[in-house]
Design a protein around this nucleic acid. Structure first.
Length: 571
RNA sequence: GCGAGCGUAGUGUAGUGGUUAUCACCCCACGUUGCCAACGUGGGAACCCGGGUUCAAAUCCCGGCGCUCGCACCA
């Protein structure tokens, strides 16, 4: 990825450390790759991004927040496929030292790779003479499982039950599907949202906040009836953004609405959530011209997905996947249904018109079949119930699985004819999942907001964050900390800080210009200055970060001005 | 996990065997100025960790940890 200005990333990272936004964690102990600290400003930004995210989805009424543990018992992740998928066996070519996934090497030469142990795969590599794609050698090291989940044990000592730190929040929501289903009065569609930490033991985390071992995810599972895929008209359907459909692999510019009508987006509900996602991330401060949707090809699809669009954001690290919008179909719920053997993971679909069904079947008479056929009895009973052609009368012959025919004598079966009313049926709901990588999004919000302008021949840094994701709403400044200006400013800051939803900073050190500059660099959208006139008439100046313009306003109006994000005042 | 480079105040850096560890921004105090990174004086703050070589190590060697880049990996 071409970088117009390679120094920009260094300066941006430098500001983020200096101003207490993000920094490597545990640095005094040498640091741990893939773990970061959010400092005072960063934690505030993160809090607001998460809150905005929760508020956005909660505003629709059919989506509610839930919360589930990060510790997840092994069985859940076996069912979801993560235990299998995340335990990749790695092998090294002893001649050229390249590392490969062993199962990928064996593809095509071994039938059922998933069922093989590490030892079996190691011997297969040697036995089948698999050559190294790099150097052509046939000298493989022992296969080593590469576990991308953090394993632990719940319970005392060796009696503990194996568990993992969750690799995604989604499974917790699938676990709560029955509770959500009841809450929503058994009517689909509905959704569950959750934010929280996820954990992946990456082999080599790089790129600062981009690949973390512990990271904040925000996921939405939207459950619906696949026969009636829901679409709403809210969201941003019209803004033209970059799209890379997998069919062409070529970048094109179009709106979500056009991409759906052209059939590039395969599923209308996926399109709907792409439109909503676009609206949401724009409000967080993402520049839509540096956003693109890229459709996954069949080969890179996750094990659970049937159609998936990544929302990638462009920043100093190039194009980075920040959000995945996947149609997970019925995969997860079905997996949990089969692994638990429970009927909790389904929904009832009522027919518009109840169907009248005439049942005309032969029913086995168990008391006669049992003694007559002994161990074959159950198979025969089943065969009687599933007869294609209805014999008119006894005796008749039925064909068993092994091809032999057996005669059903008088008294072994009876014919019943009845009319039944069927009002609906059970089905497994499908799920569309928008999954947001919050840390990656925060990085890009900062990147998109960061601007270097020239002022009096010097570089001047401004973080143009929207107020909703700025670390503070306003900074209150005494023009000079004397003659009572400092006290008045402090009082104003204290009062505003009490208002719900407002975060206010107070700064009285150094010249006024320097304090404006500090606030600009920290992304604070408003600066309130108490000057000599304030002492006389209670008015203050309100300075807008993005253009430096100032207006006078009464100190008592500040709260409503800030809460309206400046929309009720003229500049 | 492999290879290469790198690791000095909060940030960016100078320093290639002996320095009181350089400079700037920064932060604090006082004074001054009186609305967009002013100025003066004073102060604060660093050699990634461990071992070795040496009379002496930020500097040389070894190991660890971390960072950057390339290869590989990436639900």
């Amino acid at each position: 990825m071409a970088r117009a200005d390679s120094g920009r990333m260094e300066r941006l990272s430098s500001i983020m450390r200096r101003r207490g936004i993000v920094a490597p964690a545990f640095e005094t102990y040498g640091g741990v790759a893939g773990l970061v600290d959010y400092g005072p400003l960063g934690a505030s930004i993160r809090r607001r991004v998460i809150d905005s995210w929760i508020e956005y989805w909660s505003s629709f009424g059919d989506i509610l927040e839930i919360e589930s543990p990060t510790l997840t018992p092994e069985e859940v992740l076996v069912a979801s496929g993560h235990v299998g998928e995340f335990n990749d066996l790695m092998t090294t070519c002893n001649s050229c030292e390249s590392v490969f996934r062993a199962d990928h090497l064996l593809e095509g030469s071994v039938g059922d790779i998933d069922g093989l142990s590490a030892v079996e795969i190691s011997s297969s590599l040697a036995k089948d003479g698999i050559t190294c794609p790099g150097c052509g050698g046939v000298d493989w090291s022992e296969c080593v499982p590469m576990n991308l989940m953090f394993k632990t044990s719940v319970g005392a000592m060796s009696r503990g039950r194996t568990a993992y730190l969750r690799p995604e929040t989604a499974q917790g929501m699938f676990m709560q599907y029955p509770m959500l289903y009841r809450h929503f009065r058994q009517k689909l569609p509905f959704g569950g949202i959750q934010t929280g930490k996820g954990y992946r033991n990456e082999i080599s985390p790089r790129q600062g906040m981009i690949r973390l071992r512990e990271f904040t995810m925000a996921e939405l599972e939207y459950f619906f009836d696949p026969e009636e895929p829901p679409v709403g008209d809210d969201g941003d359907w019209s803004t033209v953004v970059q799209m890379i459909p997998s069919s062409t692999g070529q970048m094109a510019r179009m709106s979500v609405s056009v991409a759906l009508s052209k059939g590039l987006i395969l599923h209308p509900t996926v399109a709907w959530f792409m439109a909503r996602t676009l609206e949401l991330v724009r409000s967080l401060g993402v520049d839509p011209s540096r956003l693109r949707f890229r459709q996954h090809g069949q080969d890179e699809m996750a094990h659970y997905a049937s159609d998936c669009w990544d929302c990638e954001l462009h920043g100093e690290h190039g194009w980075i996947e920040c959000i995945g919008i996947a149609n997970r179909t019925c995969h997860d719920l079905e997996q949990h249904a089969t692994h638990t053997g429970k009927g909790d993971f389904r929904a009832w679909r009522a027919f518009v018109e109840p169907k009248k069904v005439r049942v005309d079947k032969w029913f086995p008479v168990q008391s006669a079949i049992g003694p007559a056929f002994k161990s074959l009895a159950s198979e025969i009973s089943e065969a009687i119930g599933e007869l294609d052609k209805m014999p008119e009368s006894l005796p008749f012959k039925i064909r068993l699985k092994d091809g032999t025919e057996t005669t059903i004598e008088e008294g072994m079966a009876e014919r019943r004819t009845e009319d039944r009313v069927v009002t609906g049926e059970w089905y497994t709901p499908h799920v569309v999942e928008p999954a947001f990588g919050i840390d990656r999004i925060i990085w890009h919000i900062l990147d998109h907001a960061y601007e270097e302008i020239e002022k009096d021949g010097n570089r001047y840094s401004v973080l143009r964050l929207p107020q909703s994701t700025a670390p503070f709403d306003a900074v209150v400044l005494p023009l000079f900390d004397k003659d009572g200006m400092g006290d008045m400013a402090k009082t104003i800051a204290d009062i505003l800080s009490k208002a719900r939803g407002l975060k206010i900073q107070y700064d009285n050190s150094k010249s006024i210009g320097r304090r404006y500059a500090r606030a600009d660099e920290a992304g604070i959208p408003w600066a309130i200055t108490v000057d000599h006139q304030s002492l006389k008439d209670g008015s203050v100046t309100l300075r807008r970060r993005d253009d430096g313009k100032q207006v006078r306003c009464n100190k008592d109006d500040l709260q409503s001005v800030l809460l309206s994000q400046g929309s009720n005042i003229d500049f």
